[in-house]
Design a protein around this nucleic acid. Sequence first.
DNA 1: CGTAATGTTACCAGAATAGTAATCTTTCTC
DNA 2: GAGAAAGATTACTATTCTGGTAACATTACG
Lengths: 142, 142
Amino acid sequence: MFTIGRNTDYASRIVLHLACLEPGARVTAADIASRRLIPSAFIRRIVSRLSAVGVLATVRGSGGGIALARPAAQITLREVVEAFEGPLSLNVCVASPAVCPLAVTCPVQQAWVGATQHLAAFLTGVTFGDLAREIRDPQSVP
Amino acid sequence: MFTIGRNTDYASRIVLHLACLEPGARVTAADIASRRLIPSAFIRRIVSRLSAVGVLATVRGSGGGIALARPAAQITLREVVEAFEGPLSLNVCVASPAVCPLAVTCPVQQAWVGATQHLAAFLTGVTFGDLAREIRDPQSVP
DNA sequence: CGTAATGTTACCAGAATAGTAATCTTTCTC
DNA sequence: GAGAAAGATTACTATTCTGGTAACATTACG
Ligand code: SF4
Ligand code: SF4
């Protein structure tokens, strides 16, 4: 079906949730999990990955929690996607042309390279600052 | 890694091969399989699907083979992709928003809808007529 | 009828997915 | 310092998906 995995989607929920709060607000992972319908035993790994990648800043111990490492306006959807799906590459030969012996003369490869670049550009243009702003209008989510 | 499957890639090789021949040329599947490095026991299902979808016209029996059902210029890469990956949908909520309870207020969904539309538009713009023309220049492939 | 071709189905091994669970480490509060 | 509250890490599992193989069925030419 050619879709992103659940990990990636959950990650975007987490970042979006934080982007909707006051800048710099810190909140526990379990809290986000319950509000955003993320399996509570699952969110740990996701948060861990996001912080390894530099999207989240975490504080351990009692009274700790997670927060955005940077302003939401500087976090792109692409960054979150690539943290879980790896570098964008719509066909195996885009990331590493060597895997296909036909790559040298294959015009389809060029098409996939182009499609990947277009998608990457689109996702780079979507920041969580923009996304959070869209949700402020109708009713603010707890 | 978020890529198309091998089925889809093999399918594009088949269509490209036919697009490089004389218009209307008919050739056996086994021949394409050996020239384009497709597992020979695999190509059957792929050809079958492509013909069910209206991209290929097949002729059974001795002396039969496969050919494009329409001029290559009218066959888009999107069509081939969707024949194997299903309707383009970069996240589950794009194809059917009902699967996610958050969909009604989720701005990320809008982003995925947009990304899917952009990708779809790009792939619609790539026809095998164009692709075949690119390969005629350097050296014609057997 | 025999042969050459596609159509269809069943099957399989290995990988990926989605999720659970248990344990470790850090740090605050009392 | 004890205990509790948090995140970090790892191992495990069940299910599905993927890529591929194999066998058989169907069609058509000669
Ligand atoms: S056949 Fe072309 S598109 Fe397919 S993997 Fe090889 S180079 Fe890429
Ligand atoms: S959270 Fe938003 S993007 Fe994710 S599945 Fe639900 S509607 Fe779609």
